Computed example of a mutant assay.
Amino acid sequence: MEYRFNRDCWVESSFDGFLLEHYAHPPGETVRGSHHPQPVASRIDTAQRFFADRGESIRAWPSIAALLQRFRDCSDHARAMMRRLGIAEACARCDRIEPHGSCCSVGLEEKIDTMILVVNLLIGVELPKTGTRPDSCFFLGPEGCTLFARHMLCVDYLCPDLEKSFPPTRLHAMQIAAGDEIEALFRLGEGIKRACRIAGR
């Protein structure tokens, strides 16, 4: 079963603007008047430039280290629950047999902002240089998502068929685990922004 999401909504934060101004282009170039996200390859490049400049210093902050560990723990718990409930296998099976693939369809990568990419770099993920399948999300690889930190939609969404297959108690437990992962990622992102502000950006 395939369900596609709204790809046209993008809210640019002040941190996005900061990254665009300082890391998106070589010195001397500026970005003006754009209210659309960078192409995914440019966002990856921006995240890598930011990480090369500030990654190690940010990771050394005790508060960031604690937030990173909290996020890892929450994500590991949510993923383990998905495996136990058979969600991961169901999504992989859908991707194999459905004509249009799984819900991880082309365009979903537009939801992945630069902050999420920065978090992946802080965790040690090697960001892909190219997508592997033109009909799917840029970050969908042969073994599933190539990202550790993902957009909240990727974490929380279950298609109607899967929702119907679980009793309410299991669905509730999965939603709690997903919510914990989403909250931990949000708090980590806010911590990174705070570290940049304190350092004077």
Rank of each mutant, 00 (worst) to 15 (best):
Q69W: 14
G191D: 01
C91G: 02
V119P: 07
C9G: 00
R93A: 08
R49G: 00
G55F: 11
P134I: 02
E56L: 14
V106W: 05
C145I: 01
F166A: 07
G141W: 01
G86R: 03
P134F: 06
A47Q: 05
P128A: 03
I123W: 14
L121D: 06
I182E: 05
P39N: 06
R32D: 08
L67F: 02
Y23W: 14
C91L: 08
A90G: 03
I58V: 15
P99E: 07
H172T: 11
I44C: 10
F138E: 01
H100Y: 12
F138T: 00
L122Y: 05
C103D: 09
N6G: 03
V11L: 14
D95N: 15
T114F: 09
A92D: 02
G28I: 05
R49T: 01
L121Y: 10
V118H: 11
D95R: 15
A41R: 15
F71P: 00
D180P: 00
P37D: 04
F51T: 08
P142S: 08
A65G: 11
T130V: 11
A173R: 13
G131M: 08
H151R: 08
F5S: 11
L121K: 04
T169Y: 10
F186C: 03
A41D: 14
L171R: 11
F15H: 13
Y23A: 07
I97Y: 15
D113C: 13
Y23N: 09
G55C: 05
R54Q: 15
R32C: 05
T114W: 04
G189I: 01
P168F: 01
H151F: 14
S136W: 00
L171M: 09
C137V: 01
D73K: 10
S34G: 13
F50R: 07
L127R: 02
L19G: 08
G86C: 04
D135Q: 11
L67G: 03
K111Y: 12
H151D: 14
I58M: 11
S63C: 00
I58Y: 04
G33N: 13
C103L: 08
R96N: 06
F50M: 12
G101N: 09
Q69C: 10
L171Q: 04
M115T: 13
K129F: 00
I192H: 07
G28P: 08
F15S: 06
L171Y: 11
R96F: 10
Y157L: 03
A173E: 15
R70W: 01
R84T: 13
P37G: 05
E109Q: 15
K193N: 06
Y23S: 09
C145R: 01
D156M: 10
S14M: 04
A52T: 09
A24W: 14
R197A: 15
I64M: 03
F51H: 15
K164C: 07
Y3T: 03
F50Q: 11
E98Q: 13
T146V: 07
S57C: 11
G131I: 04
P160G: 04
A41N: 11
D16R: 04
L122C: 07
G179R: 06
E181G: 00
G107T: 09
